[in-house]
């Protein structure tokens, strides 16, 4: 691999100032996307700034109505955390299906959301649960966060510190994983907040989004069969060797139907 400088700051201020003083700096969280990317030569930042030592990015708290998770929390921790499993099982379920076991032991929530891979799982939760993203300097509504392919509302050098997830009455996540990579070809999270339905979709488009058309139907009738009549346009959906845009649009409906079936069985 090419040579780079490696830094391990112990505060957000220090991390940001390292970033600002570098010509080409990049934050490292769990590294499960970044390190393979570096090895393949797809990115070659001069300064790698490892965020693992920053206390403010760690910790999980569960309050009435809200689960607040530090950005550096690994997927396996969310999958196994007894309190999250109790109050927000949909998130443990989602985290427990990211990649594979070894990847979940290292990969972090903040890394996943900051990277905004179109096929990542966490974005479906950020959207579907209406999460709030906290950075060192401001809060960003989940609805305003994902902008485009690998593009988010984060400014250069801005660091996600934690994400707050409101706790719905009930919710379910279904994904159609790529059989080799386990990335979501399509993933749909459906959440019921006292009768108001939110639907977060990942994998289908350039970035995660709310499926408002599906929400409107489910708000009328929370029934998987109600979705059969929904016409979901595939304009702008991803088309690649794994799935065509048309197939992804179909999968969005099927995953939503299955998630609603799961919700009704809770």
């Amino acid at each position: 691999m090419y040579r780079f400088n490696y830094h391990k700051p112990s505060s957000i201020e220090e991390a940001v100032s390292l970033f600002n003083s570098s010509d080409d700096g990049f934050y490292l969280s769990g590294g499960q996307t970044l390190i393979p990317t570096l090895k393949l030569g797809l990115a070659s930042p001069v300064d790698i700034i490892d965020l693992s030592n920053i206390e403010a990015l760690h910790g999980i708290s569960v309050d009435s109505g809200l689960v607040s998770i530090g950005a550096f929390t690994r997927h396996a921790e969310v999958a196994e955390h007894p309190e999250i499993r109790r109050v927000l099982p949909v998130l443990s379920h989602l985290a427990g299906r990211i990649g594979d076991g070894q990847v979940r032991n290292l990969g972090t929530m903040g890394g996943s959301v900051a990277n905004s891979d179109p096929a990542a799982d966490y974005p479906a939760a950020v959207i579907g649960l209406g999460a709030t993203i906290h950075t060192g300097k401001r809060t960003i509504s989940g609805d305003d966060y994902f902008k485009d392919l690998f593009e988010t509302a984060l400014e250069p050098g801005e660091i996600i510190t934690r994400i707050d997830y409101p706790i719905p009455d009930r919710a379910a996540y279904r994904k159609f994983p790529n059989p080799a990579s386990r990335y979501a070809v399509v993933g749909v999270l459906v959440a019921d907040f006292a009768g108001a339905i939110r639907v977060g979709v990942t994998g289908a488009g350039p970035c995660a989004f709310r499926a408002t058309g599906i929400e409107a139907v489910l708000n009328q009738n929370l029934d998987p069969d109600a979705l059969k009549v929904v016409d979901l346009p595939d304009a702008g959906f991803n088309s690649d060797l794994h799935a065509s845009a048309e197939y992804r649009a179909h999968l969005v409906k099927v995953m939503a139907e299955r998630a609603v079936t799961d919700i009704l069985a809770l």
Partner: peptide
């Protein structure tokens, strides 16, 4: 795959500093 602090990790995807 090796164990790091008791958990499995892919040792090809971790930098020395980590």
């Amino acid at each position: 795959t090796v164990h790091m602090n008791g958990r499995t990790v892919k040792s090809c995807s971790l930098l020395a500093g980590q």
